[in-house]
Simulated assay, not measured.
Amino acid sequence: MGNSSLADANAFKAAAVAGQVGIDPDAAQTVLKKIRTGKDTVEALLAGAGALAEKPKLGDNPVGRAMAAKFEQRAEGGNDSYAAALRNLLSQYEAAEQGIVTAMAKYHEIDQAAADPFRHA
């Protein structure tokens, strides 16, 4: 599973922390609300993901047992599992949320720094 979206979210967060990005807090509220709603939804799905780890009943034969074990492993947290995908998505939401919050905080600092040369002229 690719993590380019996570890398992008982390890059945005790093740019905000470095003061390279500022976002008007009033304009960002809608985006922040949507990010938090998505994050809450993913957290709820992740909380229920363990229920998927029940071994399906595919027959009492070698193939059925092997397939059931494979499905169980994928559901419960292997690298290609539903839970792993949800954890990756949650990390993306968290990085985006932290980046937006930081960029909102930096907005006024950046605005003041841009205006300072004109005030002292």
Rank of each mutant, 00 (worst) to 15 (best):
56 P>Q: 03
113 A>S: 07
6 L>D: 02
47 A>F: 06
23 I>T: 02
57 K>N: 11
5 S>M: 12
97 E>D: 12
36 R>Q: 14
85 A>P: 07
18 A>P: 13
26 D>H: 11
38 G>C: 01
104 M>H: 00
16 A>D: 04
35 I>C: 00
21 V>F: 01
39 K>H: 06
58 L>N: 04
81 S>N: 01
33 K>V: 05
108 H>A: 15
118 F>H: 07
84 A>E: 04
88 N>T: 12
11 A>K: 15
84 A>Y: 02
36 R>P: 06
23 I>W: 00
22 G>S: 01
15 A>N: 14
43 E>L: 13
86 L>A: 04
70 K>S: 14
14 A>R: 09
35 I>L: 02
68 A>V: 10
114 A>W: 02
8 D>G: 15
17 V>L: 09
40 D>F: 08
41 T>E: 09
9 A>Y: 10
61 N>A: 05
77 G>T: 04
29 Q>A: 00
78 G>I: 03
45 L>K: 08
53 A>T: 10
48 G>M: 15
119 R>W: 07
112 Q>I: 14
34 K>Q: 13
20 Q>L: 12
25 P>E: 02
86 L>C: 06
63 V>I: 07
91 S>Q: 13
77 G>L: 04
78 G>Q: 05
76 E>Y: 14
3 N>T: 11
116 D>V: 11
77 G>P: 05
47 A>M: 11
102 T>Q: 13
60 D>H: 11
89 L>E: 06
107 Y>K: 03
5 S>T: 08
72 E>P: 11
38 G>M: 00
103 A>M: 05
56 P>S: 03
42 V>G: 03
121 A>I: 11
54 E>A: 10
120 H>D: 09
37 T>G: 09
80 D>G: 05
56 P>E: 02
118 F>V: 10
70 K>C: 08
107 Y>H: 06
79 N>V: 13
43 E>K: 10
19 G>N: 10
115 A>G: 08
67 M>K: 12
11 A>S: 14
58 L>E: 04
119 R>C: 03
71 F>D: 12
120 H>L: 08
64 G>S: 07
21 V>G: 01
21 V>A: 01
85 A>K: 09
95 A>H: 01
47 A>K: 15
5 S>E: 09
67 M>Y: 11
12 F>M: 08
117 P>T: 02
103 A>D: 03
73 Q>A: 12
60 D>Q: 14
59 G>Y: 15
12 F>N: 03
65 R>Y: 09
64 G>Q: 06
115 A>M: 15
88 N>Y: 15
67 M>A: 11
53 A>K: 12
105 A>H: 01
87 R>A: 07
114 A>G: 03
31 V>I: 10
47 A>N: 09
2 G>I: 08
1 M>P: 15
53 A>H: 08
28 A>S: 04
77 G>Y: 05
70 K>E: 10
36 R>L: 07
16 A>S: 07
75 A>L: 07
28 A>N: 01
66 A>N: 06
52 L>Y: 05
77 G>F: 05
107 Y>W: 07
46 L>H: 14
40 D>R: 11
46 L>A: 14
13 K>D: 02
65 R>V: 11
12 F>T: 08
108 H>T: 13
117 P>G: 02
80 D>E: 09
1 M>R: 12
40 D>A: 15
16 A>C: 05
3 N>Y: 05
101 V>W: 03
41 T>K: 10
